[in-house]
Design a binder for these strands. Sequence first.
DNA 1: AACCTGACTCGCC
DNA 2: AGGCGAGCCAGGT
Length: 105
Amino acid sequence: MTTFDKVYEAVKLIPRGSVATYGQVAEALGNKRLSRVVGYALHVNPRPGVIPCHRVVKRDGEVSSAFAFGGANRQAELLRSEGVAFRDGSHVDMAYCVRALPLMR
DNA sequence: AACCTGACTCGCC
DNA sequence: AGGCGAGCCAGGT
């Protein structure tokens, strides 16, 4: 069981229609400073399709533009189709982050 | 085997 | 208020 595996498991627990921040996922793993590792784990994501990496956003709710499997626009579109509300074109409503929190812990 | 880097976050100037 | 450094893990060079 590597740290990466834990990241994947936590991310898989995020329900459809909700999102979580890197920090929240990291905290669920026991160390909030793992946020950077969380991002890296998704970067080398071995299973797109199984791991809902599009539901993970930055602390302010902004979606990552660094590497969005298929484009950042694609990520936003997937989230909207799941019922996630956006503050603007690239920021999700923070209320959706809080919703996923208890499910990972 | 050591060093560098990367989808982040927070605390201290 | 905006910039900078530190802490975390794994994989490639």
